[in-house]
Amino acid sequence: MKKILPILFPLLAALTLPAAAHEGHDQGPAARPARIELATAAAFGPDGQLHIVAKDGAHLVWRHSPDLGATWSAPQHVNMQAESIAADGDSQPRIAFNRDGELLVTWTKPLPKPYTGEIRLARLPRDGSAFDAPITVHRDQAEITHRFQNLIVAPDGRVTVVWIDKRDQEAARLAQKPWRGAGVYSAISDDGGRSFQPERKLAEHSCECCRIALALDPDGTPVALWRHVFAPNERDHALARLKADGTPEAVQRATFDRWRVDACPHQGPALAISADGVRHAVWFNQRDGEGRVFYGRPTSAGVNGQRPVGGPAAAHADIAVLGRRVVLLWKEFDGERTRLRAQRSDDDGRHFDPPQELDATAGASDQPRLLTRDGRAYAFWRTADAFRVVPLP
């Protein structure tokens, strides 16, 4: 990969950078210093434009650009009524487009009790005039963890939302029974995100604070990949295809690093699936005493082609597949600056070119994201002072 210069565009004047408490694992909101919440959802829409959603105080703000950020539409509130919004680390707003081309935005609304929340969703009708009032996706209204949501739209129009949920852990606590980790739940919409069926359990014993990856199999079936807690306490990953009601066809082990730790690394996996059904994944785990980002191709018989990605400080990787091309993206701190790096394979992930540095910052930054449009991949990265878009060859 030859050196590609990033397209830098300053943060929009309408988007402020509020400080907020980090939602940590096993720590109260006052246990950590305030952090800038930079988590930004980004995607190319059916219109070919770049769409972003980012936090602005007690609102999410949506804008779109026809030219990779050189110019932008006027900002528009996603939620007209102010409310708490999580936008840091693996707790991110998410966006997708339904079959009618309408924009769907999901986010976690933190509740007063630490580590609790509810999953919210707002829909922008096709006329683009204003977002509908947000709805809570799940029926369960207990003040417990419903967090770390993701969504995907299948070719048949079915909208699937998944999240980390602690209702089973709470039930076990009340019954004075042991329980490992949290759980994964899902809810399905058959009307483009206007309403959702009652939620269903996808899996028990997930990790508590890691994002869930979603991708579509060639037949249009959603596939979920998440950090699971395998007995007695191995924090590897599990994978499942989701049936039409949101329950899994089966839950299979996807990684075998056998990391035994009673904690959550706040680093969920990423998943991409090729047209021939091969699953390509990146994830963070500890193996042989060393924490690393890995790439591999999970199968029912194990992981093919597992290899480390970047150096020991690599983190928060993403992945995209374009034909036989596999693109990896991650950030890596060198002690002074955070580097944005990418790596490419042109033979289905069997061999990779040397890593290439795309950009760097000395300040805070969000997790990088790979976007695709018209057979090309783009790196999207928000830093404390800019949104950065890097077209990849």
Results as ranks from 00 to 15, higher is better:
D47E: 03
L60Y: 09
G157K: 08
R235E: 02
N150Q: 13
A172F: 04
R180G: 00
A379C: 02
P269T: 01
R297N: 14
E204V: 11
Q92A: 11
T106A: 11
V309N: 10
I95N: 04
G335K: 02
H316V: 00
H280I: 03
P6A: 06
D346T: 10
A175K: 15
A41W: 00
Y378L: 08
K177A: 14
L124E: 02
A86W: 07
A203L: 04
C209M: 11
A172P: 06
Y185S: 14
D217F: 09
W163P: 02
P248M: 10
V389R: 01
V278M: 13
K201Y: 00
A19E: 15
P222C: 00
G181T: 05
R337Q: 14
G349A: 06
P178I: 02
D334R: 11
L151A: 06
L17C: 12
L328M: 10
P248R: 12
F294E: 06
F333W: 13
P112E: 09
A231I: 05
Y115L: 13
M1P: 14
H316F: 13
P18S: 08
S206Q: 11
Q27F: 13
A171R: 07
I119R: 03
V278P: 03
G183Y: 07
A364W: 12
R344F: 11
R158H: 10
P178T: 03
